[in-house]
Design a protein around this nucleic acid. Structure first.
Lengths: 338, 338
DNA sequence: CACACTTGTGGGACCGGTCCCACACCGACG
DNA sequence: CGTCGGTGTGGGACCGGTCCCACAAGTGTG
């Protein structure tokens, strides 16, 4: 790379000249080929350092038809589990000499397409779609044309696109069984909007309630996955015939519901117990101390990376769906039934 | 873009042939040049749609020496203000036909360099460094060679690198004056680790205390910006001679300190008031309801974009530092002195 | 009616790499 | 001692665009 303003950028040719070899040899050194004499390699490496040379990724990808780059499209970076997911994904990809670029498509639907096109245009080696998102044609098309893996969403199934997700039904079962073990019977559920992962959580809740002989106490209210909605649903729940425990579709909704309980002069966990979902950083805060279902986002990220690497190697392999086992993290928001 | 497996990718030549024009004309249409006849334009656009053509960004950037891409290196995506910052940045960049790729460099220092090199190698048009981060040589070098803007950090000043940050001293003043207005005198501060933005907050606190005639009540403990440290510092504060109000370096630390107060059987805000910094999503949660200094991350993002666009146009303009005015968001964690 | 001057078009060098192929050189082997 | 396989090297086509230049029309002016 040349200093700003210089008219003679340092290219592979410059390096070759300096090292007294052909550009082919420089290219070989860059790629770590073994067919280079030790002397040539040393000369090239010295020249690279002296000139401060950095290869041009555009030229590389044009010639090699490979970018060593993975595009990650996330729906809403605000979701706390993304951070750990991305950490797991990034680390594992790095092991395969790939790196991830993240684009957040929350803002508006038009931007989604722009960002996705940016990835397609730069010919990323693979695509990761993370989090529940509305499935547009652009997304569907890109996922079919590029090696792709979907993480944390189960609404889109395509023949050659793998899916990694947390085991939502199992997570819900863990939550309910924990509450049942504490003696709770009137356990309500604040469910999420229309998406398969949220339906699974709800189904898991209902199944676990029935398995515990509490079918008659099943009570579900639906919310968007915002704190506001959690608060509104909580207020509705506690207005009449309040449950002794609430299991919610995610942590943020749960804190909203907890605030509603507090406003209704119910204390947590003495009067009402709460279990969230995601085990996000919010749940882990001492001030919140939320018992929550850990969806192991890091493990999901690692698995996503593995599946993507496999698919890049073998693009037409049939799609697989992989569920990561969740774990319950018990904190101070749950206690024995009053 | 060709469907997977096809050996004949759709290129500009393919489109030209199909439309019955030269590749130059297709290129012109792509770039929105006016020097194209309406008929040629229509033919090209039709061919593009029919073939599902997408330009190759690598080839474009190689020829045009421009990527229309901005690299954003953030230190820790976990910091909640990044989300709004990135939203403001991304939207404003989009207006200039640029898009941002985000790389999170938290994990380990080695990865920082890898990601930065990835940006340099792909010849991004500009670089944004966001959040406090250790200033390595790689960072310093990249910032000098590429048009760059630093956001939310004031530790690195280079002749041609603009800086955008929140006005930390002013934010601290707002916080202290709010507490003073509520009658508090013994106002403690939990300060952050060694970074200019945190020093500014502390200095602002001390100045405001003195201005209010409360110099003798200045009391500072230092923490890392984690919840754990906030808890530990809070515990220390409340062990002996507890203050009636605490102003902390950020929201996360504040919740830790609040939990320590609760553990010391002090209630918030009846016994102790708390003011955080950042006005993050954490502060806005009803369950937390933290009075906090809004650093207007969205505005910071927008300003960062503006400065970067300017700098790309004029790379050697002298550096400017721009401070965004903060605002206090009063919630339920502050009340009149007991 | 010769002369600009504008407008649309095509040709081809070029960006900075990769990668295939040809070739020179080497010791080993029949 | 000619032939063979392996090893290191250089040359050059190629990837898919951009952009400069030349040039053919069409338009207006003295």
């Amino acid at each position: 790379m040349s200093p700003r303003g210089s008219d003679h950028p340092v290219t592979l040719r410059t390096v070759a000249e300096r090292a007294g070899v052909s550009k082919s040899s420089v290219s070989r050194v860059l790629q770590g080929s073994s067919r280079v004499s030790p002397e040539a390699r040393a000369a090239v490496e010295a020249a690279i350092v002296e000139l401060g040379y950095r290869p041009n990724a555009a030229a590389q990808s044009l010639g090699a038809r490979r970018t060593k780059t993975i595009g990650v499209l996330v729906n809403d970076l605000r979701q706390p589990w993304f951070v750990d997911f991305l950490a797991g994904l990034g680390e594992r990809l790095a092991e395969h000499d790939l790196h991830a670029f993240v684009a957040d498509g929350r803002l508006d639907r038009g931007l989604d397409d722009r960002l996705l096109h940016a990835f397609v245009d730069m010919r990323v080696d693979g695509l990761v779609l993370a989090g529940t998102m509305p499935v547009t044609d652009t997304i569907r098309e890109a996922a079919q044309r590029l090696p792709a893996v979907i993480a944390g969403m189960r609404d889109l199934t395509l023949p050659t696109v793998d899916v990694v997700a947390e085991d939502d039904a199992e997570g819900a079962r863990l939550a309910v069984e924990h509450l049942v073990g504490l003696g709770h019977e009137r356990i309500a559920h604040i469910a999420g909007p229309d998406a398969e992962v949220f339906r699974q959580r709800r189904a898991g809740y209902e199944a676990a309630m029935r398995a515990a002989g509490l079918g008659e106490h099943i009570r579900v209210v639906e919310a968007d996955i915002t704190e506001d909605d959690g608060f509104a649903c909580g207020a509705a729940l506690f207005a009449a015939d309040p449950p002794t425990a609430v299991f919610t579709v995610n942590d943020l909704v749960c804190t909203g519901a907890m605030a509603a309980a507090r406003d209704a002069s119910l204390s947590v966990p003495e009067d009402v117990s709460f279990v969230g979902f995601d085990d996000s950083s919010i749940a882990r805060m001492r001030w919140v101390g939320l018992t929550s279902v850990d969806i192991q986002p890091r493990a999901v990220g690692e698995l996503t990376a593995d599946l993507l690497v496999d698919r890049i190697a073998e693009p037409d392999r049939p799609a697989r769906e992989h569920l990561v086992a969740p774990a319950l993290r018990v904190r101070t928001s749950t206690a024995a039934r009053p």
